[in-house]
Amino acid sequence: MATKRLKFKKALCIGCQLCSQVCSAYKEGAYVPSKARIAIETCYDDGSLKYIDNYCILCGMCMKACPFDAIDMDKGWLHVDPEKCKGCGLCAKKCPKHVIQIRDNFAFICDTCEGDPNCVKACPHGALTFE
């Protein structure tokens, strides 16, 4: 069975940031989007509407970059081993979507809520899907 991934359709995005709020709710125990594993926003710039879509695409670059083999994708989502991760930040630097956060010597990476992403449930018009 093919790995499901988060997909984003900008035409359906309204920039509400409910994805980050809900992610932080389930993962951080508070509504604190600055600590979410997803950060999608829209903004106006130079007369056009821009979409900044930072979400995990399961590219695996973080996994390849990790010098301590702390990251695996065995179950179809990214998992960081707390025993091995040193919080060095190399994964965050490599992440093309800029969604890895390094805090308290640990890498916080989206794990698609173990195959049942909550951000998708919060997205009003299905801009975010999991397929």
Partner: peptide, 16 residues
């Protein structure tokens, strides 16, 4: 050209 809403919006009334 696009739709937009406010923070925590669930509907998105803005028409760009």
């Amino acid at each position: 050209l696009g739709k937009r809403g406010c923070g925590s919006c669930g509907l998105g009334c803005g028409n760009f």
